[in-house]
């Protein structure tokens, strides 16, 4: 599960970065440029902020392109316990400004052909009408300059 394309650690936690999942929602670097700086290489600096703050911003990522785990296994058990509580929460549909519709939690998604689409925790649906992989967002909105509340 944790075979991310890139990983970064500060000794306490490891942050995983999955470039293919990223749609450049920009939450990470707008919140914490000291750690997440796309203009720098490596773009994640694990010494830029306290662990707690890094975890807070990783959790903001709407696409799960960022993930983390504790290097200490006992702490991971605590983390997965916290997550199963979060998964029982009510389903959420969120509009991303100038971007996709983000679905989190339990949803049944039916496509234009009437077929049920596999939905696992998070789905991003295209709102701009230009995705090459409909009904999902493929990031095209950022190239076409789509504007939409």
């Amino acid at each position: 599960m944790y075979q991310g394309n890139k990983k970064y650690t500060n000794g306490e936690i490891t942050v995983f970065w999955y470039p293919k999942k990223c749609i450049h929602a920009t939450h990470c670097y707008r919140e914490l440029i000291e750690v997440f700086n796309p203009g720098r290489r490596p773009w994640i600096n694990m010494n830029g902020a306290p662990t707690k703050e890094i975890i807070r911003v990783v959790k903001l990522c709407p696409t799960q392109a960022l993930d983390y785990k504790y290097n200490n296994e006992d702490a991971n058990i605590q983390k997965s316990g916290d997550q199963s509580v979060a998964e029982k929460m009510v389903a959420e549909a969120r509009i991303m400004k100038n971007g996709p519709l983000v679905l989190k939690g339990d949803f049944t998604i039916i496509d234009a052909d009437g077929k049920e689409i596999k939905h696992h925790k998070t789905s991003l649906l295209c709102r701009c009408g230009a995705s090459k992989n409909p009904p999902f967002c493929d990031g095209t909105h950022s190239k076409t300059g789509y504007l939409g509340n």
């Binding site: 009510v90 549909a93 234009a112």
Partner: peptide
């Protein structure tokens, strides 16, 4: 689902809107 609550449904219409129906939290861009 397991808790007895109906799973909200998302229907995508061809060349048309996305219909969201059921109990869920809706958050706008503002």
């Amino acid at each position: 689902n397991k808790s007895g609550v109906k799973t909200p449904e998302v229907k995508i219409l061809k060349d048309g809107p996305i219909i969201l129906k059921g109990f869920f939290r809706f958050r706008t861009s503002s």
